[in-house]
């Protein structure tokens, strides 16, 4: 038991150190041209464009379910008119960016870790180094930057789709007037609500991409470790998003 605890602590400390070193290397390499535009565009397509259907479905169903739950729950107290306000605020401040990040962590984080891990096992990462180029520049930076660019955009899209999902259920199931719904949403939401939600996406993007690249690059041998790295990347980045969300929310309230 003690041994297991020590091993977990060792791995945690290794991860914290590795995360910090990788982030520093990314920052350092970003300062040195040339920049890999083509690779960045490829990753924006993979991470941003190809995540679009998943984020659309997630956001739409979240908005719809939240509206249904609040509508039924608040109906007992005559609180249905507050549904547009509660749902849209929850989506913009929390659900949109957090659910988007969790879905991206699952889809993209897993893909990154397994792809990079496989490249380690087949010596492709060594080949990049042996050919006088940098895996940080060629592999890590395009993925980190693409996630950094795409996640806030996907979060913004999730906000919009989530609110529209709420509107659909509000009108069809709760029999709310669509004009009333839209008026309530537009008079409730402020730019601050949008930025406090989407602002967190920038941090979540770093959590997802650096964590996935770290676990991919630290694969030592064999395909079994690739699978393990993939699982670890998703689990750890999800935990970082959920725990980080609390502290970032507090931080944004202070600011």
């Amino acid at each position: 038991m003690t041994q297991q605890l020590k091993s977990t602590l060792d791995r945690f400390l290794l991860f914290v150190g590795g995360f910090g070193i990788l982030l520093k290397q990314v920052a350092s390499e970003l300062l040195h041209p040339p920049f890999e535009w083509r690779l960045l565009m490829e990753q924006i397509y993979q991470i941003g464009f190809r995540s679009f259907p998943l984020i659309f479905i997630t956001a739409l169903s979240t908005g719809m379910v939240m509206t249904l739950q609040f509508g039924i729950g608040l109906a007992k107290f005559g609180g249905q008119p507050y549904v547009p306000k509660i749902v849209s605020l929850s989506i913009l401040r929390e659900m949109g960016p957090v659910f988007t990040s969790l879905m991206v962590a699952a889809r993209v984080g897993a893909g990154m870790a397994s792809e990079i891990g496989s490249m380690v096992v087949t010596q492709q990462i060594d080949a990049i180094r042996a050919l006088g180029t940098s895996p940080i520049r060629k592999i890590v930076i395009p993925r980190v930057l693409a996630t950094f660019i795409c996640l806030p955009l996907l979060g913004s899209l999730a906000n919009l789709v989530g609110v529209v999902g709420g509107l659909i259920v509000g009108v069809t199931e709760l029999k709310l007037d669509p004009e009333f719904y839209i008026l309530k949403v537009t008079t409730t939401l402020l730019l601050d609500d949008y930025f406090s939600g989407v602002g967190k996406s920038f941090f979540f993007a770093i959590f997802i991409s650096i964590t996935a690249c770290y676990f991919g690059l630290t694969v030592k041998e064999g395909t079994k470790e690739v699978g393990l790295a993939t699982t670890q990347a998703v689990v750890v980045s999800s935990i970082l998003i959920l725990v980080g969300d609390f502290f970032l929310t507090k931080l944004f309230f202070i600011l």
């Binding site: 087949t122 010596q123 492709q124 060594d126 080949a127 042996a130």
Partner: peptide, 8 residues
């Protein structure tokens, strides 16, 4: 490299 290590 032993296996070529080609970029797949």
């Amino acid at each position: 490299f032993q296996g070529g290590a080609l970029f797949d």
